[in-house]
């Protein structure tokens, strides 16, 4: 019975795809574009965790999702690369469109979608292999076999996250031996070797010390020049430091809702919703 829900959870994406049928934008390097989240609701079994979210995420910027625990920020994030498919009994309604990509194709194939949409988790989760294998594994699985190509991608993504100088002489030692902050940057590099357009981050600094947190935040700012970043965070100061746009979630009558959304400065300086005003007092 719950098995069926998985099938249902695919449906909105397929529907979403057909709704933009014909409006395929070319894979361009143009900065314009946005991710359109329309009326999205997520439920686990009979319990709805987040409902009726409509949100437009501009391309090549940082959008922070903030709000208290349990209001569905992470659930929403997991829908964007359809990682919610892994959760039995999870069903999704509504649609998510990437204005600059072929949504029909993405809807058919979550592998394609997840290659374009990278993700960073709460706890660093490198595979317990060597640093090199962590980085080349996904490339090989995606059909990149030429060693020269692989090596150059590994080097450039390690440089991008500032790890190259720290680990270039021990690429074959275990990734688990790295510190927490290094592991998290390795995970970021692991996502970057696939050259994703969008990066999802689920409280990426919650398990890190302040210095590592600062490094990640600097990275977020530099990555956002060429990539769209959606960041779930519990740290309001972090949101203030890195976000261009902020979306505030709140649990109303047991269900997560989007209560306010706008430019970071506007939301922090002139919150419109009274719950946001109270919440941001602690910022």
């Amino acid at each position: 019975m719950i098995n069926d829900n998985r099938a249902i959870s695919l449906e909105p994406f397929v529907r979403a795809a057909s709704s933009v049928h014909g409006t395929v934008t070319h894979l361009s390097t143009a900065a314009e574009g946005h991710i359109d989240i329309q009326d999205l609701s997520v439920s686990y079994g009979k319990r709805t965790v987040v409902e009726g979210v409509t949100l437009r995420v501009p391309r090549n910027s940082v959008t922070a999702l903030i709000g208290p625990s349990g209001c569905g920020k992470s659930s929403l994030l997991y829908c964007i690369n359809r990682l919610n498919d892994l959760v039995p009994g999870c069903s999704v309604e509504g649609s998510i469109n990437f204005s600059w990509m072929d949504n029909k194709h993405l809807a058919k194939n979550s592998t394609q979608l997840r290659r374009q949409v990278g993700m960073l988790f709460q706890r660093p989760n490198p595979f317990p292999f060597s640093i090199r294998k962590n980085l080349e594994f996904a490339l090989r699985q995606h059909g990149i076999k030429a060693q020269a190509d692989i090596n150059s991608r590994i080097e450039s993504s390690l440089r991008e996250v500032g790890l190259w100088d720290e680990v270039h002489d021990r690429l074959d030692s275990s990734a688990i031996a790295l510190s927490g902050g290094q592991q998290q940057r390795l995970c970021l590099a692991r996502a970057l070797v696939l050259n994703p357009d969008v990066l999802l981050m689920d409280e990426p600094c919650s398990a890190l010390d302040p210095i590592s947190t600062q490094k990640i935040e600097t990275l977020i700012l530099s990555l956002a020049q060429r990539r769209t970043i959606i960041l779930v965070t519990h740290s309001l100061s972090q949101a203030r430091r890195v976000a261009d746009q902020v979306a505030v979630f709140w649990k109303l009558e047991g269900v997560g809702k989007l209560i306010e959304c706008g430019k970071a400065r506007d939301v922090f300086d002139r919150p419109r919703h009274e719950l946001t005003q109270t919440y941001l007092q602690f910022a």
Partner: peptide, 8 residues
Amino acid sequence: AGGAALGL
């Protein structure tokens, strides 16, 4: 989840 997020 880590593997799936890489599109594997």
